[in-house]
């Protein structure tokens, strides 16, 4: 049930984007992937999701496949929030009469029960992102890939969704791969943080976040500082 990434490389014809990435993400683990803009974080998720083939190496994903949460909510604008979630259930093969109840549960899970009949453009950014989360959970896959899902949100909403995500993750124990370029977010959510270097993207460093760090603001701040430092070094490499 774990994700096994073995010596993965990816290029789009020219220079390599990802190079020699090897790591294993165990079942139920929450891994945050950090990196500068353009370092290949989205590419990594796309390859894991099967949206792009790897150029070399291999990716082993559990048989159930991966659910994906895109950077922009990617809700279909002609469907209501509920119908967006129902579409995910439909494409998963859930019979029609079971879909509605299930979608209702999912909406309730992300506190959107009253907004289910609104269309995406009638929802705020945070609500859209929660609907998108509900849809990803509705796919009911063992793995959840999240590509900077909260990057475009204001700080208050993002904070709320962090709690929401943590709550859901704790209740359902998905394997989560969470891409971000926000160090605090990575430390806040991840059990493990991977830092990708740029051009080519390799795993430059890796931190385990022990449980006690999360409840200790001072330790959290210290670790955030360390990781930020390392990230800046990584970016400075490309100054000349």
């Amino acid at each position: 049930m774990s994700i096994a990434i073995e010596n993965l490389s990816k290029d789009y014809g020219a220079a390599p984007v990802l190079s020699g990435i090897t790591t294993t993400i165990v079942t139920g683990e929450f891994v945050a992937v950090l990196g500068a803009s353009g370092c290949g974080k989205s590419t990594l998720l796309n390859v894991i999701a099967g949206l792009e083939p790897p150029s070399a190496g291999s990716v082993g994903v559990p048989a159930g496949g991966a659910a994906f949460m895109f950077q922009d909510a990617a809700l279909l604008p002609w469907l209501t929030a509920r119908a967006n979630i129902e579409l995910a259930l439909e494409l998963r093969g859930i019979p029609r009469n079971a879909r509605r109840a299930r979608a209702g549960e999912l909406l309730e899970l992300v506190h959107l029960a009253d907004a289910g009949d609104k269309r995406p453009h009638e929802l705020s950014g945070g609500m859209r992102q929660r609907a998108s989360l509900a849809r990803a959970l509705g796919q009911d896959r063992p793995v959840l890939l999240m590509d900077e899902p909260f990057a475009a949100l204001d700080a208050i909403t993002r904070d709320l969704l962090h709690e929401e995500l943590e709550r859901i993750w704790r209740a359902h124990r998905r394997t989560v791969l969470f891409v971000t370029h926000n160090v605090r977010e990575a430390v806040r959510l991840g059990q493990r943080v991977l830092l990708l270097s740029s051009r080519p993207g390799r795993i430059a460093a890796e931190w385990k976040i022990p449980g006690h760090v999360r409840t200790d603001p001072a330790a959290q701040a210290a670790l955030t500082g360390d990781i930020t430092q390392r990230l800046r070094e990584e970016i400075r490499h490309h100054a000349n």
Binding site: G28, R102, E105, L106, A171
Partner: peptide, 12 residues
Amino acid sequence: MPTSITSATAIA
């Protein structure tokens, strides 16, 4: 395989 998604009872 992780538990399937919650029902209202699980939320409760």
